[in-house]
């Protein structure tokens, strides 16, 4: 976690990229739905290979922030960079230009996203779900996509479920297919939006195990979660958000053991 000063975007990118450019860099990002300001000047950065957990009460803006990163939501203010590239816009001089839908799609394919409700395509089998985007977005040869898809499903422990439709998979299995589907696009960043919140308690572990394995393989991950155990064990950094602002950031173990802020304390006392 490096705190970003409110300098102009160009200079701050240059400053941070001097060493290793961060995978995600948010500079005073704000977002409102109508008059409801959901994100208020969020500034944070995620280094390559870092696993960051975003925690906070519901309505604190964590999911919205995640969705801004792959441009599912359009940012109202500030700048958001993924791997040094401005999300959703191109900048020429002082003017921002909205990206063409195709360019935006190209940005998104570099970012994997896993949803709370899995959002698997129900009319496709597990394997078909995984190979869909590689074949139709990346234009990979079918044989290659299938081989890679099988490998990924194998990796998430679903070797014997490749031909199953999502309706015949448990929630945990569906979420693991969803992770494999996102990984099939070879993303440089993975976003998890409360990946275990819709799961039965006994199925949470199998999904967290897959995510842990992914973290250990060096994937950059931003995880919105209520699983404090996962945050403590796997995450490199923890960000506590409330009311659209970052309240506290730091090393998970320290924050969880010794929260500095009253709101963090209050929240942790409820979830721990």
């Amino acid at each position: 976690m490096s705190d970003v000063s409110a300098a102009s975007p160009a200079t701050s990118v240059a400053a941070t990229s001097a060493a290793v450019p961060p995978m995600v860099l948010a500079e005073q990002v704000s977002k409102s739905f109508g008059s409801n300001e959901v994100l208020k000047s969020i500034s944070l950065s995620v280094a390559k290979g870092e696993v960051m957990c975003l925690v906070g009460p519901s309505g604190s803006g964590k999911s919205t922030f995640l969705r801004c990163i792959n441009h599912l939501e359009v940012v109202n203010g500030g700048r958001l960079f993924v791997d040094g590239e401005l999300v959703g816009y191109t900048q020429k001089g002082d003017t921002l230009y909205e990206l063409q839908p195709k360019q935006a799609a190209a940005q998104r394919r570099e970012i994997g996203m896993v949803f709370q409700k899995f959002n698997l395509f129900p009319h496709m089998t597990a394997l078909e779900n995984v190979i869909e985007a590689p074949i139709h977005v990346k234009k990979q040869p079918k044989a290659l996509a299938i081989a890679r898809g099988k490998e990924l499903l194998d990796r998430v422990g679903l070797t014997d479920r490749m031909g199953h439709y999502p309706a015949h998979l448990s929630g945990g299995q569906q979420q693991r297919v969803a992770i494999a589907r996102a990984l099939a696009m070879d993303p440089k960043l993975m976003l998890f939006d409360e990946p275990t919140s819709a799961l039965d308690p006994e199925l949470v572990g199998e999904v967290l195990d897959v995510m842990k394995g992914l973290a250990q393989s060096g994937m950059t991950m931003i995880v919105v979660t209520h699983e404090m155990g996962f945050a403590r064990e796997v995450a490199d950094s923890l960000v506590f958000m409330d009311g659209g602002v970052v309240v506290e950031t730091g090393v998970p173990r320290e924050i969880i053991a010794n929260p500095q802020h009253a709101r963090t304390k209050a929240f942790l006392s409820k979830v721990l």
């Binding site: 998104r108 949803f115 959002n119 985007a133």
Partner: peptide
């Protein structure tokens, strides 16, 4: 969520509709 998942995978609007 289906549209969102397809969009997040980098599919264009047309691909999302069609596939």
């Amino acid at each position: 969520g289906q549209e969102e998942a397809a969009t997040a995978l980098g599919m264009t609007w047309f691909q999302t509709m069609q596939r």
